[in-house]
């Protein structure tokens, strides 16, 4: 380097440093954990993303007489909500959510094995990446955040033919369908999906996002709701569960 150097504060602003919350993620989480002494260790283990500790906590709670299926809502989902709330507030980052969701899903499997009853989920969502498109990381994030928020996800994967999407919607009867496309050449499949769903009389909200997709495009088909960030997907599902229709969703999530 030549002798040139600068005081960077005169030419750029590290807004992330400037805006960082004073509280550490651990402190913030500690305020949100359930008070119950059987549930709290489970919630903590989810926050830490430690599967083994989640199972251990569940075992203790079951030994103490708790119903395994009730534990899904009372402990696992409560622990996961701590994580998703802190993610929404910008206190923790996505990999933490992913690791916590993995731990929570292991916990749910464990609870199911311990019981003959089936748990009721908040609702089912079908996720897919448009036909011809292999860019699937955004979809994986969307699916993980939906699961983290208590939704059952049927993940059709990437490069999914239109027919297969329609079949899945018929078979699974989801509360919402999501589509991800990162290429201007593949996003047109969403229009085809929309038309075929309408033909079949399936008026399911169709949340669409991904790099190439924009609000103007999604507005051109009836069932489409544009989602800018993955974190919008569970928010949309929550609204649907609360009774919102497609136009109300468009009203709320079409930000531009």
């Amino acid at each position: 380097m030549t002798s040139l150097d600068i005081d960077p504060s005169e030419i750029l602003v590290r807004y992330n440093v400037k805006m960082e919350k004073a509280m550490t993620p651990e402190d913030a989480a500690a305020e949100l954990y359930p008070k119950d002494e059987l549930y709290r260790p489970i919630a903590e283990a989810i926050f830490e993303g430690e599967e083994d500790d989640v199972i251990e906590g569940l075992e203790k709670a079951i030994d103490a007489g708790k119903n395994p299926i009730a534990l899904i809502d009372d402990a696992l989902m409560v622990g996961m909500k701590v994580v998703t709330d802190l993610y929404d507030q910008g206190v923790i980052f996505l990999p933490n959510v992913m690791m916590s969701a993995d731990a929570m899903l292991d916990g749910i499997d464990f609870c199911k094995e311990q019981s003959d009853e089936a748990p009721v989920s908040k609702g089912k969502v079908v996720c897919h990446v448009a036909e011809g498109d292999v860019h699937d990381i955004g979809k994986t994030i969307v699916a993980a955040l939906l699961r983290a928020n208590g939704y059952e996800v049927v993940d059709l994967g990437r490069d999914v033919p239109v027919d297969e999407v329609i079949e899945a919607v018929k078979a699974e009867k989801p509360i919402m369908l999501t589509g991800t496309a990162l290429m201007t050449t593949t996003m047109y499949a969403f229009k085809a999906v929309n038309d075929r769903l309408l033909e079949a009389g399936l008026k399911v909200p169709f949340a669409c996002g991904g790099g190439a997709v924009n609000q103007d495009f999604v507005t051109t088909y009836e069932l489409g709701v544009y989602g800018e960030e993955a974190a919008d997907a569970p928010k949309m599902a929550d609204k649907i569960v609360a009774g919102a229709g497609i136009s109300a969703l468009k009203e709320e999530f079409h930000k531009h």
Binding site: R14, Y15, N16, M19, Y87, G90, I92, F93, L94, P95, I137, I141
Partner: peptide, 11 residues
């Protein structure tokens, strides 16, 4: 995935 300064998906 890391994105801009304020994104929260990856350090």
């Amino acid at each position: 995935i890391a994105g801009g300064l304020l994104d929260k998906n990856l350090a």
